[in-house]
Amino acid sequence: MRTPTSIDVPEAFAASYGGQGADARAWLAGLPRLGGDLLERWDLRPEGPAGHGVASLVLPVPRADGTPAALKLQQPAASSQQPAASSQQPAASSQQPAPAASCWKGSKPPATRAL
């Protein structure tokens, strides 16, 4: 059985983002596990300290083949969880929204800084 992976959330990010209300604090509470789950799903490993801005956490992560990448985690906005007006598919009420995360790939990760 695999040991669950989790990520470290910088205290400065948690303190700043957690001040945005109960939803933000709940998202932060699940962030270590969410980040770990995504690292495992995409076969990534953190390499270096996490960076952050006002609303997202960014982990430098080389891909399995060594290509530099970054995993960005951001709480989904309520407006992004609604289907587009032009969408022909109805929203499934029992479905959880997909986590806001992306994996950047390129020769050099974008600059990040702590605010």
Rank of each mutant, 00 (worst) to 15 (best):
A69G: 10
K72P: 00
E47V: 07
R33D: 14
A50R: 08
P32A: 12
Q88C: 00
P68Y: 10
P76C: 05
S79W: 12
A55H: 11
P60G: 13
P76R: 15
R41Y: 04
L38C: 08
P62L: 12
P83F: 05
Q82N: 04
L34I: 15
E40A: 14
P83A: 02
K72F: 00
V61F: 02
Q75W: 00
S80N: 01
E40L: 06
P68Q: 07
R41E: 05
T67H: 03
G53P: 07
G36S: 07
E47I: 05
A64N: 03
L38S: 07
R63C: 10
L39C: 12
A78D: 13
L31H: 11
A85F: 08
A50L: 06
R41Q: 11
L38D: 07
A84S: 00
S56C: 11
V54G: 06
A69L: 05
P49K: 14
L57Q: 09
G30C: 11
A29I: 02
D65S: 07
T67L: 14
H52K: 03
A77F: 05
P68N: 11
W27Q: 11
P68G: 11
R63Y: 02
L59Q: 02
A55W: 06
G51I: 07
S80V: 09
H52N: 02
S80H: 08
L73E: 02
R33Q: 15
A78R: 15
A29V: 05
L31C: 11
Q88W: 00
G51L: 04
Q75M: 15
G53F: 10
L34P: 02
L59N: 01
E47A: 15
L38F: 09
Q89V: 00
A64C: 06
E40S: 13
